[in-house]
Nucleic acid binder design. Structure first.
Lengths: 207, 207
DNA sequence: CTTAGTACTTAGTGGTTACTAGGTAACTGC
DNA sequence: GCAGTTACCTAGTAACCACTAAGTACTAAG
């Protein structure tokens, strides 16, 4: 529990907002790398240069920190996607209905390609949280429905049922992202997405 | 460590092969539910009605048990897939080159639809093992290459490059399976696969 | 300058982790 | 039926887990 004397010498007290942000960033990176059950409170606290108790002062429990991480990401991501599509953030979900599916997907993929750490966080937690015992289980059940509705709402001739359509899009995107995360050197996400989605959408022969 | 007296009374000594099989089955189920880092040796041992030390007598370490689980599954799965396609198990990888991609995929999907527990094991570990610190990291790197080669080898006009083609197939299949695992009541895996793959392959309009 | 609030510390809690040493008792080969 | 092997047990280990209580030192309001 005790900090090394060198670290204690330069220890600093941050404004609560700044410290929370720092903790959430570190947690995002570490949980994305090893999963929620593969990371300890101590790991995250050490990455911020504070003690376990110091971290828990801000979030109370490890579970609460995870929820904070996810809620923060959702907001940041929605905002950045809306900006990318030229839409007001609070009208994202309605405005997207008027756009072509290909354009919406391209924007999502382009954004994701810039933040592998975040994509990894969601990919790892999505699988880890399949069990109801996981603290993010309910969150990911709700998120799944939200994302399917999101990708099902733009007009497209991919499949007549919007739920099936949304599921097909998220399945292709999620699966391709896993290949990309495993081997980012050899897999260029936007290129591979264009090839896969172009094929699924139009069936245009490519050879 | 001590077993409850009721369990100690009916404790039994099994042949090593039988006990190993029982342990691997229990580990498959539990690791599939909660991931490798979400399950303890004690959990798995308890599921078999033996002590931690009793389990470790057979496998030495928790890591070694995981490897045993994966190697066992690979063999069983290859055999069952070969049987389904009417191929000798040891010629699976060559024989599949002569088959239509759609047929190979349909066989894989049909088999997977019958064993959600196994699909879950691979889905959870595939994400968890993205980090090099995971004991199954090397295994999943090798497996990724093997599976891409497998799905890239049958003839198909999906994409001219067999590596890209293999990646596209495993991406779609993997992604769809995650949707199915999350909500098996509402997602019928073979039906959804046929819709998605049919679209990706031929581009035939469906509405 | 004083005081109230709080960010963060040390020092613990009881529980769990993977794993080991050494013993017992059930099988197996002869 | 005896001897050797081994499946499995009890009983530990040290390290780690999330979390708590109580104190200290910094900051900001008045």
């Amino acid at each position: 529990m005790r900090l090394a004397s060198a670290e204690r010498a330069k220890r600093q007290r941050l404004a609560p907002g700044d410290r929370r942000t720092q903790i959430i960033d570190a947690a995002t990176r570490l949980i994305g790398q090893r999963g929620f059950w593969g990371v300890s409170v101590h790991d995250i606290a050490a990455a911020c240069g504070i003690t376990d108790a110091g971290l828990l002062h801000h979030f109370g429990t490890k579970d609460a920190l995870l929820i904070a991480v996810l809620e923060r990401r959702d907001k940041v991501d929605d905002d950045s996607l809306a900006r990318r599509l030229g839409i007001e953030p609070d009208r994202l979900y309605e405005a997207v209905r008027g756009l072509p599916l290909a354009e919406v997907c391209a924007a999502v993929v382009a954004r994701n390609a810039e933040q592998p750490e975040i994509v990894r966080l969601y990919s790892v937690l999505n699988a880890e949280s399949l069990t109801p015992a996981h603290p993010a289980h309910d969150y990911f059940v709700a998120r799944e429905a939200r994302v399917i509705a999101f990708f099902g709402s733009p007009r497209s001739d991919l499949h007549p049922d919007p739920v099936v359509r949304g599921r097909q899009v998220i399945a292709m995107m999620d699966g391709l992202q896993l290949r990309w995360l495993r081997d980012p050197e050899r897999v260029d996400l936007p290129t591979e997405w264009a090839a896969l989605f172009g094929r699924a959408l139009s069936g245009v022969a490519q050879s």
